[in-house]
Design a binder for these strands. Sequence first.
DNA 1: TCTGGGGTCCTAGGACCC
DNA 2: TCTGGGGTCCTAGGACCC
Length: 384
Amino acid sequence: MDMDAFFCSVEVLDRPELRGKPVIVGGGVARGVVSAASYEARKFGVHSAMSMAQAMRRCPHAIVLSGRMERYAFISRRIMELLATRTPLVAPISIDEAYLDLTHWLPPGVSAEEVARDIQQEILRETGLTCSVGVATGKAIAKMASDLKKPNGLVIVPPGTEADFLAPLPIGALRGVGEMTEKRLRDMGIRTVGDLAALPEALLTAKFGVAGRDLLALARGFDDSPVVPERQAKSIGRETTFLIDVTDREALERTLLDLCEDVAASLRRHALLARGVTLKLRYGDFSTHTHSKTLVEPTEVTEMLYDVALGLFRAANPTRAVRLIGVTTGPLISVADRQLSLFDAPSEKHRKLASAMDAIRDRFGADAVIRARLADKPTSRDQA
DNA sequence: TCTGGGGTCCTAGGACCC
DNA sequence: TCTGGGGTCCTAGGACCC
């Protein structure tokens, strides 16, 4: 199940005067990208992930909105609840998409196709939004089927017809084939999934390794990875791109603290501890570097994360202007699995303070308590 | 054209251990 | 003085997805 132009459709729902107009939800025009484009905007060649600058060139009269994530998340939760009434095996893969395994959950005498239509009608009735659905024996093929007839489409791939369904599709439509792989395959003369399916496995493995073998299997219709609900997160991170590249170390370090604060709060909210920290820096030429360190002891404490992140930042010693800075933590373990060390005492104070601050923020909002370090000057993120 | 922010998974070399 | 093989962890980079 895949919602159609989800963010834009929600905006049109809430503001009917937008209906029929080219609407784009995305980041700032300066350095942002398109998050969602209405079908009217897509007619002009606008699509998600395109830079806003290019989108505006292609569709100068588009209505550009910055997006309201809380509103989208609210509607998403409602949709996921509706899906959960059909089968316990629902795996949300993003805010507007989910896989359902109906194998053992079809009501007697009811086909998967009928359930799919029913879901589309129910979502439309309950939210006013349309979605597209693909029905197949595997996730990847179901996803490709749902992409085929948007919006409000329903495409069924009967068991045994997978390879025939895939063969005419352009190679870039195959899940796992991104920009890089598409280019390499096209250079080899491969244009459709059928072309790929006809190649010998040895050739694909030689060129692309394990990924080549997997792509070939999918191209031939073999797709059986299970629908797994509720997978535990393996990493949690925050990053920010500046409006203008930043050289000022003090400003960068302040942003780093801000990011660590966010990440730590998220870890605590999910009752997780980080075993490692990765600092990410992107420079003006878009070159991107990461610097990681495994922690002596897993933590969810802002100061511990910041201490390590700052150490990585100072060791990296960036001399060029920074376009993006980010902090990612992982791998993660559950708080329940914390191994208490003999030298744990000093961080206990931090943990208590942090949970007190989290509680205040939950009740009074994110800005109710802020660090003295972040209090006076605006952080670079405020400017971004 | 000039590239967000949230992730997952894979590769590969070197350290380290047995 | 010419030096194994296997497993796991750490770190960096990169492709891909939504």
